[in-house]
Simulated assay, not measured.
Amino acid sequence: MIFTVANQKGGVGKTTFLINFAYYLKDFKNKSVLVIDTDTQANCSYSLCNANIIGDTYSLFTDDVNILAAKISGIKKDEINLFKSTIDLSNENEFDNSINYLQNLKYLYTLFDYILIDTAPVLSNKLIYSLELSNYVITPIELEIYSLQGLSLMLNTIFNIKKNRNNDMSFLGVLPSRVITTNKRQSKNLEKLYSEYGQDLFLPFIKYRNDLANASASQTSFFKSNSKHKKELINVFDTIYAKM
């Protein structure tokens, strides 16, 4: 399965979700997992620096599938495998052709149960290509005004690609993240979203937990921390997994 996490707004918990969902799939569902970091900020690559690095994401766009297959070595199905971000991804003009990326992901699809793609918070060819290839897509948001303003644009992008380029894509939902349940403004914003879009479009929210941020900063799995809130996140992930 190819699973893309996408939002054109940064700072919404996108990478934190993806990292811990990768650990969830590996540790709780016994799935082989590959993470592809397409974001030049490389936050995902930083937090997964202890993963099994099998290549860099730039090569997925530049190498044909035969060259890539020859390069890859040391895949470890019992670990998270990673194509890391590099500065080479920053020149968007280089990514106007999706042929190599398409063929390489089709090849990698045969090697792993799940491919998770972290995308940059900008509308780019890398994001478009990833959505075109995805079986499943999730859009994390923060319940603050700047994040909410860009939601309709992101949803329009996703559903236009689904309609015109990838009919098999399943949009699993909008995922409110970093939710402070005692914050009246956020609660009001969530109610407004439910009213505007329909509650069925939304996944169970992830509460703001400092332990989550600490785990990412410490480059470790949240599920291996001492946090008393692990069950909360597992319940959200169980819901997402059940929808796939």
Rank of each mutant, 00 (worst) to 15 (best):
G10N: 03
V12L: 03
T38R: 01
S85C: 08
I80C: 08
F21G: 04
I87T: 11
A120R: 05
A120G: 05
P121G: 00
S152N: 14
G13A: 01
P121A: 00
G74K: 05
K71E: 14
L133T: 08
S73Q: 12
D64L: 08
S47A: 15
N43W: 02
L18S: 11
F112G: 13
L123V: 13
S124M: 02
L131I: 12
D39A: 01
K77G: 08
I80G: 02
E92K: 12
T38W: 02
K29H: 05
I99G: 00
Y109D: 13
S73W: 00
T139S: 15
I138N: 02
K126Y: 06
I128F: 06
S130L: 04
I128Y: 12
F83D: 07
V33A: 09
L116Y: 01
D78E: 15
L131A: 03
I141R: 00
D78T: 13
I128S: 06
G74Y: 02
I99C: 03
I54D: 10
Y23C: 12
I72G: 03
G13I: 07
I141G: 01
N97T: 06
T62F: 09
I117P: 05
K77I: 10
D37L: 02
G55E: 00
L68T: 08
L116P: 13
A120K: 07
Y24P: 14
K26A: 12
I99H: 10
I54K: 12
F61W: 10
N93Q: 11
L123H: 10
N97L: 07
G11A: 02
V33Q: 11
S98F: 06
L108G: 09
K29S: 05
V65G: 05
N50H: 15
S85L: 03
E132M: 15
L133H: 07
I75P: 06
L82A: 08
N66M: 14
V33F: 05
Y114P: 00
S130Q: 07
N50L: 14
L151P: 10
Y136D: 10
Y129P: 11
D78N: 15
I138M: 03
F21M: 09
I72T: 12
I145A: 14
L105H: 02
L34N: 09
N100S: 10
L82E: 09
D64M: 07
N135W: 06
N104Q: 08
I36K: 01
A70H: 09
A120M: 08
S134V: 07
I141T: 04
I72H: 05
I138D: 01
Y129N: 13
K14E: 06
L60N: 06
S45L: 10
S147L: 05
N20K: 07
F83H: 01
D118T: 07
F83N: 03
D37F: 01
G10F: 01
N52L: 12
F28T: 04
F95I: 11
K84A: 14
Y46N: 14
Y114T: 08
F83M: 08
N66S: 14
F83R: 02
I115L: 12
D27P: 04
Q149E: 14
L89S: 05
V122C: 11
D39N: 12
Y129L: 06
T16S: 15
K106L: 15
T15Q: 08
